[in-house]
């Protein structure tokens, strides 16, 4: 039996070996119901739903006044990043398009817009060479890695055929993890990420002659998000900002 199987087997056995609860199931139920009833009595009145809806719309309209846009052009591709703040949350949008001019204000062709439900993708761990053979794009790796980071795993996600998303993980002696996500986008593409402003600081940083977004989460994790023609990148780890930028700039 492999070590992993042993782990799981023993863990599951341990999980099912519990000391009985001092109270019976029904006694616990009574206490829960009592707690729920008390909470109901103390519940503050919330605004009517219709007022909430209006408030949301107002926030969105006001928030749209604080939109920052950054755009870069490479070859025939435009890469745009929007950052929209509406108080509690910030939305980061990435779009890539092959159009010559994306600022004409013309409405998009709604017939050609498709949406995809985000779901858990099937994935497979493999070597870098196998991953390269299984994808239609060049998988880049950083030439700079600080603090004894070593390649830990390469994972391909099969949400599309051929695969367009690769994740490369590096782990150092302290078990810190740096993860690089590379997503190939040969077609026009738009993506958005919403973050909570209380937990996350967002800033624009210079990266290899272009711009990127640096997100700093309260659990000391940082992400750098950037786009290049036909490729979206996300680098994540607990390394400091300077090191993460150096890693991002060393992609080859």
């Amino acid at each position: 039996m492999s070590e992993e199987h042993k782990w799981k087997k023993y863990l599951k056995e341990d999980y099912h070996e519990v000391e009985e609860s001092p109270h019976s199931k029904d006694e616990n139920w009574e206490k829960i119901i009592m707690e729920v009833s008390q909470a109901h009595q103390h519940q503050k009145k919330i605004p009517k739903k219709s007022l909430l809806a209006v408030a949301m719309i107002v926030v969105i309209v006001i928030g749209s006044a604080f939109v920052q846009t950054n755009q870069m052009q490479a070859f025939d591709w435009f890469v745009k990043m929007f950052v929209t703040t509406d108080g509690n949350t910030t939305q980061i949008n990435q779009t890539t398009t092959e159009e010559k001019d994306v600022s004409t204000g013309a409405l998009p062709d709604f017939d050609n817009i498709t949406t995809e439900e985000v779901q858990d993708e099937e994935s497979k761990e493999m070597t870098l060479e196998e991953a390269q053979a299984d994808t239609d794009f060049n998988i880049s790796t950083p030439t700079y890695l600080p603090n004894s980071y070593q390649l830990e795993s390469v994972t391909i996600f099969y949400d599309k055929a051929p695969a367009t998303h690769v994740q490369i993980e590096y782990v150092n002696d302290g078990n810190d993890v740096v993860t690089l996500h590379q997503t190939y986008q040969p077609d026009d593409f738009a993506d958005a990420k919403v973050v909570d402003n209380e937990d996350t600081k967002i800033k624009t940083i210079a990266l290899d002659g272009g711009e990127a977004r640096l997100l700093e989460f309260k659990d000391d994790v940082r992400q750098i998000i950037w786009s290049t023609p036909q490729m979206n990148w996300l680098l994540e780890g607990t390394e400091n900002e300077r090191n993460l930028i150096k890693i991002a700039e060393s992609m080859e």
């Binding site: 993980e169 078990n175 810190d176 993890v177 740096v178 993860t179 989460f217 659990d219 994790v221 992400q223 994540e236 780890g237 607990t238």
Partner: peptide, 8 residues
């Protein structure tokens, strides 16, 4: 939490 934190 972040995926990195989970992995770590």
């Amino acid at each position: 939490i972040n995926e990195s934190t989970v992995k770590t």
